[in-house]
Each structure stands twice: as structure tokens, then as C-alpha cells.
Design a protein around this nucleic acid. Structure first.
Lengths: 341, 341
DNA sequence: GTTTTTTTGATTTACGTACATCAAAATTGG
DNA sequence: CCAATTTTGATGTACGTAAATCAAAAAAAC
């Protein structure tokens, strides 16, 4: 049987009330007494029964998710996963609120973050816009002891407790190697479609992609990046134009959203040529394109995993508990047409 | 605030004791009364507070894991993950016991399974050996209302509640496509190293592999399967021999364990030729081989995820709760040297 | 040594559920 | 209609912890 507070009290030779004072860091305990209790806790290997504690406290975990108000498939899916998680709130004692902020607008994000100091949620998850003022705001909240995790897009150099998202440099590198290996010894040019070079995750993917391309596939030349603003129409226009102008394109790496437009352009302009295409994010559109061989591989991050992981981590941090690191690593999924879920 | 048993009692116009009788299916409740209570439960959306219930019951979850006593890296890792999970037992109210049975020995497995009827664990996870008598034993236990999940290797056609493992046919197909694409237009022969064709997961991987090879890469010929019994020494011998005899080999698919021997053979015999190699299971050895380009891609199943998933599912089934399907899908990891964890 | 302050103990209630007991009411059988 | 039986209610205790109160003891200050 695992030890209880009563056992601690008996072992330390103090009363239950004193053990409680120590456990919940309430004042009015002499240093020596506190030490006695802490020793007993260590020696008996006491771990507080979180379930019982939460029951007694009537504890809930008010969590805030801050998302950019962009309407691409991925953000839509992320939102849906958060709603799914909110449905499980009763069982998990969570109380999830979602705040949408204008995309790529550091000032808006900062003002929302600052408002949270008042609201006192027990944890905050945000899709970070990479800007110094956002970093400062996050660091301030961390110092005020709010558990904070970044979601999907990290804020390197900040004090955030955890990042629930994929390693985008590794993703870019992986895309490059897949593309390079799939192309074999062929020489030619590679078109890269991104959302915006202002977003950290896109920059990182490109960085990783370019690095491996340069190191290992010198016969493949990366064309100037097409910035499609994650918009299918823009993406379509840019890709169609690039394919028309440039007959040397033999591969495409789409590292952002807006793949609907990309796929349309490919079907219109590339029927007669053999293109190898790697795209990010598994959606209904990219899935169909993978199956009909328009796309050769899809790199994906599982939004559901990210949301559930963020919640687990925030709860653990709020309770001062350890997280299972291996469980919380968000993996880069690589989908070929054979291993689609 | 979520409704409690008190709210149900009030809404149904009955006493707490009656609600309790209904909730815990105790006898002595008239049909009409039971219906009234059940209606109230539905209308208020009551969900039993599992934490409080477990506290009151002093409930623990005695779980049994049945593993083959084979000492390859993967099983060793799986065992380690189970021990890790057992360390978390106090917090998770689990009580995990591991039983090792001789590998590939249906009779031994069956006799262990039959012994469990007496022991009354609240859940059983087993690495299934694919045999009719095992299926029958599992089905019997399921009928006796034991929650059962298969781990790593499934028992198709049985009544097991869940399978915590990867889709091995998909894994084989994926391996074939990767190998085929990596090899480009080259023609040649492919060596396949398996553990044993008596194991279902190996058979399935080969089945998926062969299917895609035949459909999509007719220029690549699969040589007769080398059965290395998951033993590094045997694997080394077989692969070294095959490479010596056959100059036409341009690719290798290793779908079982014993990769240490494979790697050694590759380093001895294939320095001068360009081989494309796909292997299963990420271990210290395969990881190093991936990094030094001896292996081109590793397909992996995360033993930690499998164990944690099995535990979550067994607990949920024991409580009659729903599982989050998407969370419990074990994904096939594809590792290139760029996305290693 | 007395007063003041700090520290400790003893006790109680609560959280939401499980489970047991005993009495009261309702239903059924004859 | 009475007795036997079934169904229901009322109540209490327990699980492990949190949190509060008030009294008692110990330590510190004077």
C-alpha cells in the first residue's frame, strides 16, 4: 500500500495538520520540523494522490489556447482537435478556452497574453508568432509562474516550458533527402512553395531543406521560393506560372499550406512531365493527391497529438509533476500512399 | 459544475441509495425506477467521476503482460518500457506483472492464458503467437469478460478488444515503395532478411513488400527469403553468403531483428557496391548504421507508445469507458538520418 | 518570569463515489 | 386482507487529501 499523509505524520512524529502545512507550503512551520516531515516523505517515498487532492480541492484546470485566425486546413483541424479535447473536459477536469488572434500580428498576440495575467488560467498554449515582443511577454508570464507551452510553432530562446510541435528543421531536411533520393541521379530544378518567410516554421523547414540539398544533392538547384501566403489561389497562380516558365523543374517541395492550389496547378501543367512532389500536412486534398500519384510523400504533424500533449504537459506543470518526455515528443509523420491512416 | 449522484437522485425523485444501486448494477430496483434513474442520468449528462470512484473503491488495475522470452533488442526494449510503466504504477493505480513464455510456443502461451482465469487481472496484454489454439484461448478469456489487447503482433479473427501495434502489411508496402523509389530506374535483385516465416508480423511485412514490388517495381526481383531467426550470427552468415554469391543484389530489406549481423555483413561485403538498405526497428546499431549510410531508412514501431497505449486501453475497457481511437493508433515511424529522435 | 508571538495539535468538514445496514414503504401472493 | 417479499429510503463510514478553526504548547522577546 502506498503511504498516506497519516503515515508521514506518524513517521515524522508530528500531527496531520503539520504535514498538510508542509505539503501545501503553508506558513507556520519551524525549519527543523519541516525538515523532519520532508525526510519522512522522502524515506517513505510518499507521493501525493493527485486524484484525491483534486477531489478535495475541487480543482479544475482552466487552460487557454491562443491560435492565429487563419482559415487553412491545418489550423481548422487544430481547432477541431481542441474542441474535441474540450468535450473530454468533464473527465479530465479541464476547462478549455480558445482565443483567436490575427495571424502574424505580434502586437495582438502580446496584448492577449498580457490580459491573461488577470484571468489566472493554470496553463497557456499558444501558436507563437516569432517576435521579440512575444518572447518578452511569454517570459514575463513564465516568471509569474504560468505554465506555458508553444504549439506547432516554437519560440526559441524564450522560457516556455515545452514545445508541442515537430522539429521543422528536421522536417525540411527529411523532405530534401526524400526528394533527392526519389529523383535518383536526375539533374534539374526544384520549386519550393512556402506560405511566408515571416513564419518561423516555414523558415526552418526551408533552412533544413536547403542545407541537405546543398550538402548531398548538388545536381538539384533550388529555385527562388514562391510565397503563396498559405492561400490556394495564390499558390495555384505561382506554381502554374513557375511550371510554365521553367521546363527544368523536376521536383516540388511545398512546405506550407494552400496545397489545394498546388495540386490543381500540378494537374493542369504537369501531366506530361514526371515531377516528384513532397508536401506538408495531410488533408483530404493532399491525401487524394498522394493516392493518385500527384504527390509522392506527405510530411505531417498530428494536430490531435499536439493538442493532447499540450494539455498533458500543462496539467503536469500546473501540478509540479514530471512529464514523460518520450511520450510528449511530437513525431514527424511521413506518409507514402501505403501507410496512410 | 458537472452533475453528481445527488443531482441524479433529486432529478429522478429517488434516494441516493437507489441511484447507487442503478449505477453499480446492484439488485433490488424495480424496472420502472431503474428507467427513471437512467433517464435522469442521460438528461443531466452525468458521467461518473472515475477518480472519486477509484478512490472510494480503493481500486487498482492489476494488469498482466505476456511476452515471448526472446532476447533481441526490440523485445528487450519492450520489456524496459513495461518496467518504466510499472514505475508509474502508484500514480496510475496500475499493478503490472510480466510473464515470459517461450517464443513461438502456442501451447505454453495457452497454458499461461488459462492460468489467468483464476488470477482475475483486470486486463491482459499479450504478444500473440498466431495459432488457432491461442485464438481460442483468447476468445475464451474475452467471453469471461477480461479486457485483452494484443501487443506488437496481432491475432486476427480473434475477439481481442484492441491491437496495440503497427499495420505490418502497410509497413512492408512502405518499405517496398521506399526501396523502389530510392533505387530509381535501376534493375537488379533484392535480398530479404526475415526472422522467421512462422511469425505473423514477418509474414505480413513480406506480403505487403512483395505486393508493392510486383505491382510497381517489376524491374526488381525479390530473392528467396533469408530466415535469420532474429539472430545476429545467423543473419550475418546468410547475408554475407548471399552478397558473395550474387553480384546482382542492389537492395536489402530486413524485416526482422538481428540487424547487428546484417550490418556487419554489409560493412564487410558491400563497401565497393551501392546498396540500398531498409531495415526495421531503431536500435543503437541500426541508428549508427543509418547515420553512417549503411542503412538508408529505418521503419520503426515505438515500444513505449505501444505499452502506454495498451495500458490506457485496458484501463478504459476495465471501466467500460471509450478510448480515443486516434490517440491509440500506433504509427509506423519512418526514420531517415535527418529525423532521428 | 511574564507577556507576546510563533509553532503545533486536535478536530471537523468537504470533495464525489462506493458500500453496508436497517428501517420503512410498496408490492405481491395467497 | 394479512403475511411474505421486494423495493426504496435514510444514514453512516470510508477512500486520501485540503482547508479551516481553535486550543495548547513551545519559543522568543521583554
Amino acid at each position: 500500500m502506498r503511504p498516506t499523509v497519516h503515515d508521514i505524520a506518524a513517521a515524522a512524529g508530528v500531527s496531520l495538520a503539520t504535514v498538510d502545512r508542509v505539503l501545501n507550503q503553508r506558513p507556520g512551520v519551524r525549519h527543523v520540523t519541516r525538515e523532519k516531515v520532508e525526510t519522512a516523505i522522502r524515506e517513505l517515498g510518499y507521493v501525493r494522490d493527485v486524484a484525491a487532492a483534486n477531489l478535495a480541492k475541487g480543482r479544475t484546470y482552466p487552460l487557454v489556447f491562443i491560435l492565429p485566425a487563419s482559415d487553412n486546413s491545418f489550423m481548422y483541424g487544430l481547432n477541431a482537435e481542441i474542441r474535441q479535447a474540450a468535450l473530454r473536459s468533464p473527465a479530465e477536469r479541464t476547462d478549455i478556452r480558445t482565443i483567436e488572434v490575427p495571424a502574424f500580428d505580434p502586437a495582438a498576440l502580446v496584448s492577449v497574453l498580457e490580459g491573461l495575467s488577470q484571468e489566472k488560467p493554470c496553463g497557456i498554449a499558444l501558436v507563437a508568432t516569432d517576435a521579440p515582443e512575444v518572447r518578452a511577454a511569454v517570459d514575463r508570464l513564465v516568471r509569474e509562474r504560468f505554465p506555458i507551452v508553444t504549439l506547432v510553432s516554437d519560440l526559441t530562446g524564450s522560457l516556455r516550458h515545452h514545445y508541442a510541435g515537430v522539429d521543422n528543421i528536421a522536417a525540411g531536411r527529411t523532405a530534401a533527402r526524400l526528394l533527392g533520393r526519389f529523383l535518383g541521379r536526375r539533374k534539374g530544378e526544384i520549386a519550393v512553395l512556402a506560405g511566408s518567410m515571416l513564419v518561423r516554421d516555414h523558415r526552418e523547414r526551408l533552412e533544413g531543406f536547403s542545407a541537405v540539398m546543398a550538402e548531398e544533392f548538388p545536381d538539384l538547384a533550388i529555385l527562388p521560393v514562391l510565397e503563396g501566403r498559405d492561400d490556394p489561389e495564390v499558390a495555384h497562380m505561382l506554381v502554374a506560372d513557375a511550371l510554365s516558365r521553367n521546363a527544368g523543374i523536376i521536383g516540388v517541395y511545398s512546405l506550407g499550406a494552400g496545397n489545394r492550389g498546388l495540386i490543381r496547378a500540378l494537374k493542369e501543367k504537369a501531366v506530361d512531365r514526371i515531377l516528384t512532389v513532397i508536401a506538408h500536412e495531410l488533408t483530404a486534398h493532399t491525401r487524394a493527391a498522394l493516392i493518385d500519384n500527384t504527390i509522392d510523400a506527405i510530411l505531417n504533424q498530428d494536430a490531435g497529438h499536439e493538442v493532447r500533449s499540450a494539455i498533458r504537459v500543462l496539467k503536469a506543470k500546473a501540478d509540479g509533476l514530471a512529464v514523460i518526455e518520450a511520450q510528449e515528443r511530437i513525431r514527424l509523420d511521413i506518409f507514402l500512399k501505403d501507410n496512410l491512416p
